[in-house]
Computed example of a mutant assay.
Amino acid sequence: MKHISILSLYDATLTSIDSSRQILTRVNDFMKYHGNPPFYTVEIVGLEERMEMDSGLYHINTHKTINQLDKTDVVVLPLLCGDFPKAISKNKKYQDWLIRQYHNNAEIVCLCVGSFFLASTGLLNGKKCAVHWAVKNEFQAMFPEVTVVEDSIITDENGIYTCGGGYSYLNLLLYIIEKHLGREMSILASKMFEIDIERKSQNPFVIFVGQKRHGDETILKAQELIESQPTTIFTVDEICNTLDVGRRTFERRFKNNTGNSVVEYMQRVKVEFAKKHLETGRRTVNEIVYELGYNDIDAFRKVFKKFTDLSPVDYRKKFSR
């Protein structure tokens, strides 16, 4: 049997703790149905016997405190509420215990923005981490030693698993079940809890927000220029002339500060413009694309799919009324 410790971190969401407990415990029922012994022992573990959740909205009773648990096989880190530096500070007493468990061969399953706490331990340094698109810029600023992954909702590296996107942690739990017990059991859990097992990316859900917490005034002006005129086709040279800056230096600074090349940034702004009109408007895809300054419809379709994993038509079907 594998012992699973779901940490009741301060300011964690009760939903992520309870749904993890329910899904992993239910696996034992599936095992029993197939004539097999239970596989998981699932316990909620905390600093105290009664822990505060969701900024004091709820309280939860734990099975054990970390002082009562020397060894576990799997540690589940739940989602945290919004003030991440504050949450990290409040949960600092967990850090040494978590690091010790990992070095004692425990797997770490990190649910969405629980990654802020995990990264604060240093265990993610030099590793990949999937991060919710809405907090990617904040995470990168706080933890530059961690490699943020944007093209997948799940990472799996050296016994540490992360996921990006609010309820994508349900997919991560299915992934863990498959790692431990095989595809058949994962599919059964998917069907019983009605979780889309094939969801692989958060790209269709991303709202692009440019990184602007870098303090480079010239780059900020460039970002504002691009974002204020999404239907204008700018060349890099035109932007450089407007800002009176050399192209080579400008492109390097832009990439370093925003994480995107100038061309990628302009493409993402245009794609965001198109997405909003596909969601709410009645104009055809061609009309929207021409307004954005593209003469080649196929070229824009490729750009759109690059950032959303969907064609403009499929995006409209998914998100339009």
Rank of each mutant, 00 (worst) to 15 (best):
L7Y: 07
L9E: 11
Y10C: 08
Y10T: 06
D11P: 00
T13P: 00
L14V: 03
D18V: 12
S20L: 03
R21N: 15
R21Q: 14
Q22S: 10
I23L: 14
L24Y: 05
T25G: 12
K32G: 00
H34I: 07
N36T: 02
P38N: 03
T41R: 13
E43D: 15
G46A: 11
R50P: 00
R50D: 05
M53C: 10
M53N: 01
Y58R: 07
N61M: 08
N61T: 10
K64F: 15
T65C: 00
K71D: 12
K71S: 09
D73Y: 04
V75S: 02
V76N: 02
D83I: 08
F84A: 05
F84L: 04
A87I: 01
K90N: 13
K90C: 01
K90R: 13
N91P: 03
L98A: 13
I99W: 05
R100V: 03
N105T: 02
N105K: 06
C110F: 02
C110H: 02
L111K: 01
L111Y: 05
C112D: 13
F117P: 11
F117Q: 15
L118G: 12
A119V: 10
G122V: 11
N125C: 12
N125T: 12
K127N: 08
K127G: 03
H132W: 00
A134C: 00
F143E: 12
E145G: 10
E145S: 15
V146F: 06
V146M: 09
T147I: 13
V148G: 11
V149L: 13
D151W: 01
I154P: 03
N158P: 02
G159C: 13
G159S: 07
I160T: 07
Y161A: 10
T162N: 11
C163S: 12
G166V: 15
Y167F: 11
S168T: 13
Y169I: 07
L170Y: 09
L170S: 04
I176V: 13
I177R: 09
K179H: 07
K179A: 04
R183T: 06
K191C: 08
M192A: 07
E194W: 05
I195P: 12
R199G: 01
S201A: 06
Q202K: 01
F208S: 05
V209Q: 12
Q211R: 15
H214I: 07
D216E: 08
D216L: 05
A222I: 06
E224T: 14
Q229W: 01
P230C: 03
T231A: 04
I233T: 13
F234K: 06
E238Y: 06
I239F: 04
C240N: 09
T242E: 10
R248V: 09
R248C: 00
T249S: 07
E251S: 11
F254G: 03
F254D: 05
K255C: 00
N256Q: 15
N257V: 00
N257L: 03
T258V: 09
G259E: 07
S261C: 06
V263C: 01
E264W: 00
E279F: 02
R283C: 08
R283P: 00
T284Y: 02
N286C: 01
E287N: 07
I288H: 04
I288N: 08
V289H: 10
V289P: 09
E291G: 01
I297Y: 10
I297G: 04
A299K: 14
F300K: 09
V303R: 03
V303Q: 06
F304E: 08
K306D: 08
D309C: 08
S320R: 13
